[in-house]
Design a protein around this nucleic acid. Structure first.
Length: 194
DNA sequence: ACGCAGATAATCT
DNA sequence: GATTATCTGCGTG
């Protein structure tokens, strides 16, 4: 499994891989691809380098964790050659190790919901801004990614990305068919100011 | 099951 | 000043 490819190619191959951090391991069942500068209006790197998205420009296998909606963290792995700033968002997974730890971080929710959604997944893994920019591959950082054998294409479904306003026709969300821990789809809803 | 509103603050224009 | 790669709780059916 090679990460040095465009995000939409890498993303489906990441399904089934194991993401570990801070004593919890999650089997990834849902991801989204975000392309690089000038290629994808929904990508944080669309308009080039900013203080926040610096990790996206790092080498493939870099962890990019960002803060959003005033309270949530979301985790990505960068791919493509260094400098292209494309990434794959870890959207959902099944907790396969460190169950008690994940439960204590997530509060009173069902086991199915422990990592069902990008912010829930990051919380279950104890990931926040302190981990961004570290490598998922060199074993030195707080998180590591164990790549698996790419799943049979027959088991993969795709659709538009969740909560994305632009490029709604692009089907860069990928998930494993029949997995209960795949997050529900929600279209983007513009906020009405009050 | 589904739909909506509120929370809450960094980031970018 | 507007937007946001979201989640939770509460309403209705």
């Amino acid at each position: 499994m090679l990460l040095s490819r465009p995000a939409p190619d890498v993303a489906p191959d990441l399904l089934g891989s194991l993401l570990s951090a801070n004593g919890v391991t999650v089997r990834i069942v849902e991801v989204e691809a975000y392309a690089g500068t000038g290629e994808d209006p929904a990508s944080h790197s669309h308009r080039g380098r900013t203080p926040r998205n610096v990790p996206m420009f790092g080498p493939p296998g870099t962890l990019y964790v960002y803060f959003t909606y005033g309270m949530h963290w979301c985790a990505n792995v960068t791919c493509s050659p260094p400098g292209e700033a494309s990434a794959v968002l870890f959207r959902a997974g099944e907790v396969v190790d460190g169950l008690e730890l994940a439960r204590s971080r997530r509060g009173r929710v069902s086991d199915r919901d422990l990592a069902r959604g990008p912010a829930r997944l990051a919380q279950a893994l104890g990931l926040d801004g302190a981990a961004t920019g570290t490598s998922l591959l060199d074993g030195a950082g707080p998180a590591s990614l164990r790549l698996g054998v790419p799943p049979d294409p027959v088991a993969i479904r795709s659709g538009p990305r969740v909560g994305v306003a632009t490029a709604a026709d692009v089907r860069w969300r990928f998930w494993l068919a029949g997995e209960p821990t795949v997050s529900p789809y929600r279209p983007h809803v513009p906020k009405r100011r009050r």
